[in-house]
């Protein structure tokens, strides 16, 4: 058997038609991971037993594979009567998993702001709220833009993991074609190339956005 380019090309439309599902999963997971990650970081900063627990949770997430988390949620939740379906389970899994990484991004983004910034704000008489909104948050955003963009791309590249839960995203669709035709190499290669193109495109878009966002304040 040889690699059949004509057959490979014929699979493109079908695989591409699943790109919407891939992007949906990625977008929801990015938002979910950012929100949960920011929450985790706020709890971790507040200290106390909650902070200690979150600290451990983040360490635990970062020391375990995402695939195993997906299996865990997929098989364990129904055991306790929680039936969310593969798609929701997958998105929750990716959100939870990457929240551990984004929490670290937020931490680094806040820690990197020099102490003098808060002092200058206080010396000018700014209140806590004004200081957070006008001085700390914009600088945090600037610090986290690059690493956050990188993790968004990581999340995109993790969406095909949901194929193991039979979510019909691009890799899943490629496997459907493969099992119908008994030809694996072509549809998988096509899916791989589409993902590579998508990842490069989004990386580039994020880099552009960063440059615009940071503008002349970037050192």
């Amino acid at each position: 058997m040889q690699f059949d380019i004509a057959f490979a090309l014929s699979t493109v439309p079908s695989i591409l038609s699943a790109i919407g599902m891939t992007l949906l999963v990625a977008a929801v997971s990015c938002v979910g991971a950012s929100a949960v990650g920011f929450g985790l970081e706020l709890i971790r900063r507040s200290g106390g037993p909650g902070g200690l627990f979150v600290r451990f949770l983040i360490d635990f997430i970062r020391a375990t594979p995402v695939l195993v988390w997906l299996y865990c949620l997929y098989f364990i939740l129904p055991f306790y009567g929680i039936r969310l379906g593969a798609l929701a389970t997958g998105m929750i899994g990716l959100s939870l998993y990457y929240s551990g990484y984004l929490a670290e991004v937020f931490k680094a983004g806040i820690d990197a702001i020099p102490k003098g910034q808060a002092e200058a704000a206080r010396a000018l008489g700014l209140g806590r709220m004004d200081m957070t909104v006008f001085v700390i948050a914009p600088q945090m955003l600037r610090n986290i833009a690059a690493p956050m963009g990188n993790y968004f791309v990581s999340i995109l590249k993790a969406t095909p993991y949901l194929a193991v839960l039979a979510v019909p995203e691009m890799l899943g669709r490629a496997f459907d074609i493969a099992s119908d035709t008994y030809r694996y190499a072509e549809p998988l290669t096509v899916a791989g190339l589409i993902f590579l193109g998508l990842a490069l495109l989004i990386s580039l878009a994020i880099k552009r956005l960063e440059i615009r966002l940071l503008g002349p304040t970037a050192r």
Binding site: A121, L124, L126, Q139
Partner: peptide, 21 residues
Amino acid sequence: NFNLFPHLTVLSNCTLALRRV
């Protein structure tokens, strides 16, 4: 170390507290 706010222009550095406080 000056502690100017790097994300704001010189003018906004000066007006921030005037306007918010």
